[in-house]
Simulated scan of single mutants.
Amino acid sequence: MQTTKYPQRVAIDMREYLPERAEHGGRVRWHRSRGMRDAVLDFSANMNPYPPDIPWIPDLSALKDYPDDRYEELKEVIARTFGRDAAEVAVGNGSVELIRAFCCAMLGPGDAACIEMPTFAEYGVAVRLAGGRCVTGDDSATVRFLCNPNNPTGTLFSHAEVFRVLDAVAGRGGYLFLDEAFIELADPRQSLVDLPHEKLFVLRSLTKSFAVPGIRFGYGFGSPELIDRIERVRLPWTVNTFAESFAIEAFRHYDRLEESRKRISEERAWLSERLEGLGLVCVPPSANYILVGIPLESGVLSERLLSRGILVRDCRSFGLPRHIRVAVRTREENRQLIEALEACLH
């Protein structure tokens, strides 16, 4: 009688294959939980300082039902807002979920993704979790990531420049993942959101433009075939009922972001001028944040500012040890930042 031989099981420590978690700003609650009881001004998270006033009241009775996991009403509202078809719309629990769902759907073990640094760290995390590898040249890459405007530099590429990148990537058979999370607060005329293209996915974020980081809502656009692949890997019910309800109301007032852009532009110019007046170097900004070169280690300056109730983005995790990123906030808040920097730099 023959006995079946089974291969010997080998214990694998999966932690060796998992990337490190990415560093992010917006850690006010974390600092408060560790005893910082005084008011903290958060310049580390890039929210709209002048968000539209949305007449939204949570409906507690809606919590008794599951959300519609197809999100048909929500997708229809988004599609009408941007002149797209609902089948071309994806939604998720923040933009990060859609980054990971896209990578899971489009990348396999060993596939290359082109990521030019410095940029948003979650691209690399998502690529590695999908089994892919990160490269700096896109000649053989399955996916090219482009953040416009870029985080943390604020560099804004024109519509023509982005289209040339798409044309080149698609010509090699690759996909362009275009992250426009901040473009609504910069210059939407440079967006490719209205361009249906089988090799393009455009990512957006309601969190930034309407200043609702607690809601966690991201959305994106692609061909129906691409959206179908993303839907297959997306976890069910990730957009909760309150997030869905708020998003529907926000898109009904989407045109009010024009006023936000005007006010941000004015305040960005004022803040940049004051920062440069302190002898600091500002990368030419285009969005609601500014990358600032500083004359000392960013960790040192960040700690000094935090002791004065100012939280900024330490850019060491971007590979920029002598830079901080600061959000553009209201005039009075920006004055407080300048005063704190004057004290901490001398």
Results as ranks from 00 to 15, higher is better:
S140G: 11
N288E: 05
I290Y: 01
E231Y: 12
L129F: 11
I310S: 06
P49Y: 02
I294R: 11
A90K: 08
P19H: 06
L301D: 03
F242E: 06
S245W: 00
F43K: 09
C103V: 05
A112N: 13
H197G: 09
G132H: 05
G222F: 07
I215W: 14
P19S: 08
L305M: 14
Y254A: 07
T119F: 11
H323G: 09
L278N: 01
R189N: 15
E116M: 12
D179F: 13
E184A: 06
D139A: 14
V202M: 13
V91N: 10
D111P: 08
D42L: 06
L192R: 07
P295S: 06
M1Y: 12
Q190N: 15
P118T: 05
A181E: 07
F318Q: 08
G83T: 01
E332K: 05
F217C: 10
S191D: 03
A113F: 08
L156V: 03
L337N: 05
C344V: 00
R32L: 06
I290W: 06
A11R: 14
V91I: 04
V202G: 09
D255G: 09
D65V: 07
R164H: 09
A79M: 04
D13W: 08
L311T: 04
R335P: 02
L341C: 06
G171W: 04
G26W: 02
H197W: 08
G214S: 03
P152S: 05
R325Q: 15
S317F: 14
A247T: 02
A186M: 03
D111C: 11
T155I: 07
C104K: 13
L195G: 07
P109A: 06
D179A: 15
A168G: 14
E161M: 11
P19K: 05
M47I: 07
P118S: 11
T81C: 10
G277Q: 04
E180H: 02
G83V: 01
A113Y: 11
Y254P: 08
M106F: 12
P295M: 01
E266H: 11
G92Y: 00
P213Y: 01
A269K: 12
A287V: 01
E231G: 11
T241Q: 13
F318M: 15
E244M: 00
E122P: 15
C114V: 05
V125C: 15
